Computed example of a mutant assay.
Amino acid sequence: MLALAATALCLGGGVAPTASADPARARSVEVPAGVTAAVAVFDRQTGTFTEQLDTTRQFRAASVVKLLIALDHLWNRGPSYDIPSADRTRLDAMLRSSDDDAATHYWVHNGQGAVIDRMVARLGLTDTAKPPATHPGYWGYTALTAADTVRIYRYLLDDAPAAVRDYVMGNLRQSTRCGTDGFDQHFGVAGAFDRPWAVKQGWSGFASGDCTASASAAGATGSATGAPRTEGAAAVDLVREALHTTGTVGAGDRSIVAVLTLHPDGTPYGKAFTDVGRLVRSLDVPGGTRPAGTWFGTWGSGVRVRALPTTASDTLTTLPAGVEVLVRCQKRGQEVSVPPYTNDWWAYLPQYGGYVTNIHISSPGNQLPSVPAC
């Protein structure tokens, strides 16, 4: 059933659970050890920032640049413009599932770096730049900052033609669990808050995401995940693993959130996923509602989320190895053995809509402490 990690944690030696944060408490940005981060949270209701950290530091944009690629393609189409079906299919996949082939299609068709030059001028971006001359085809190497990311969303929400705003934001609200390249993209904003939210995420440099409900599209020309990792090609770091979460949170898209991060070279996806989640949960995000439950670490690779607490039920998805998950409740189900452990308790993960055996939750004992029965 499961492909276990060679260095799996013993059941009694796991990470202690982290209770869901109290939304009323005072917050400050908590950057996990080893992570380089830039953060901007803008409250559209008050017109003020509630969080700012290194907002003008440049990162390689990875798939967040797909916002600019989409806006450039839709620029000056007019209020009555009817997106052709072929374009709609590509754009939907690019915005919802972060499809790399679709991004490459528009990048090449619309002039590669000229896309960025045009959008910098149109939106008044101050620290965004096209990929270095050594890598003109790699759209994921576009330089981007947290401050400019907020400017992009403010244009989209406040100044873009209504048809463009509704189309792009509508797609971001329908973000799929798995990207087309097999990475679970519901980290950060999508994991820290209940809907309504809209997200465009970015990742670059990771070996595997293990999200099972997708077809692989890795390695496309210019892709954020498949591009060669060349040191010294530009001032922007092209080596360390990048994981970005951006979007809006709350009714009426009240808050714009931009979190750009770099992780030590070789960091597994599940570890970066968890660190970004912890960082985002530390932020003051007006209008955001935090999901009920308790956060726990997991161990093992290939850990499946099941529709019911039994191995015979449908597999909904596969967790990134070692990722932290939110548990709402637990119940008895099929007894599962993963030597030397046996357990018939299963944890319900509300953000996945299914169950995992408690064997793979990092906590002592068969039952999880302080977690109610379902």
Results as ranks from 00 to 15, higher is better:
140 G>P: 01
225 T>E: 02
327 V>T: 03
282 S>C: 07
329 C>S: 12
262 L>R: 07
227 A>H: 06
32 P>N: 15
149 T>L: 10
288 G>K: 03
182 G>M: 12
192 A>Y: 04
182 G>L: 13
147 A>F: 07
360 H>W: 14
49 F>E: 06
105 H>Y: 14
270 G>R: 04
341 Y>E: 05
342 T>N: 08
209 G>Q: 03
234 A>G: 12
337 S>Y: 11
178 C>Q: 07
18 T>R: 15
192 A>G: 04
299 W>G: 01
151 R>T: 08
45 Q>D: 11
272 A>T: 01
364 P>H: 09
340 P>I: 08
140 G>I: 15
155 Y>I: 11
325 V>M: 05
327 V>F: 02
313 S>D: 04
245 T>W: 07
181 D>C: 08
117 D>V: 13
41 V>L: 09
298 T>A: 10
307 A>N: 09
276 V>P: 00
203 W>M: 11
244 H>W: 12
106 Y>K: 06
167 Y>Q: 05
4 L>N: 01
182 G>N: 12
13 G>C: 14
191 G>Q: 06
371 V>G: 01
166 D>I: 11
266 G>H: 14
61 A>S: 12
310 T>S: 12
194 D>L: 15
114 A>W: 09
322 G>S: 10
177 R>D: 02
79 P>N: 15
146 A>Q: 01
246 T>I: 15
307 A>R: 13
243 L>W: 09
370 S>W: 06
351 Q>C: 03
76 N>H: 14
64 V>H: 00
3 A>N: 09
133 A>W: 09
53 L>R: 08
320 P>T: 11
84 P>C: 15
310 T>D: 07
367 Q>H: 07
298 T>L: 05
207 A>C: 03
280 V>M: 13
291 P>W: 06
351 Q>A: 10
58 Q>H: 04
262 L>D: 02
90 R>H: 04
21 A>C: 07
171 N>R: 13
79 P>F: 15
227 A>L: 07
149 T>K: 05
347 A>R: 00
160 A>H: 06
292 A>E: 02
173 R>Q: 10
368 L>K: 03
30 E>M: 14
116 I>S: 01
206 F>K: 02
118 R>Q: 08
38 A>L: 10
93 A>Y: 05
220 A>P: 00
68 L>M: 09
124 G>K: 12
180 T>P: 00
117 D>G: 12
81 Y>N: 08
128 T>E: 01
108 V>D: 07
205 G>E: 03
200 K>E: 05
59 F>P: 00
70 A>E: 02
331 K>Y: 02
150 V>G: 00
47 G>M: 14
324 E>V: 02
86 A>S: 08
263 H>T: 00
73 H>R: 13
269 Y>I: 04
20 S>T: 07
162 A>D: 10
242 A>R: 10
315 T>V: 15
89 T>W: 11
88 R>G: 03
120 V>L: 13
59 F>R: 01
218 A>C: 06
227 A>G: 08
17 P>Y: 01
36 T>K: 05
120 V>D: 02
292 A>T: 03
92 D>K: 14
316 L>T: 11
106 Y>L: 09
83 I>M: 08
114 A>D: 10
16 A>S: 12
343 N>V: 08
277 G>F: 03
58 Q>S: 05
100 D>R: 12
164 V>K: 02
40 A>C: 09
305 V>F: 07
145 T>S: 11
226 G>H: 06
284 D>I: 02
319 L>Y: 09
145 T>V: 13
111 G>A: 10
205 G>T: 12
357 T>D: 05
311 T>H: 04
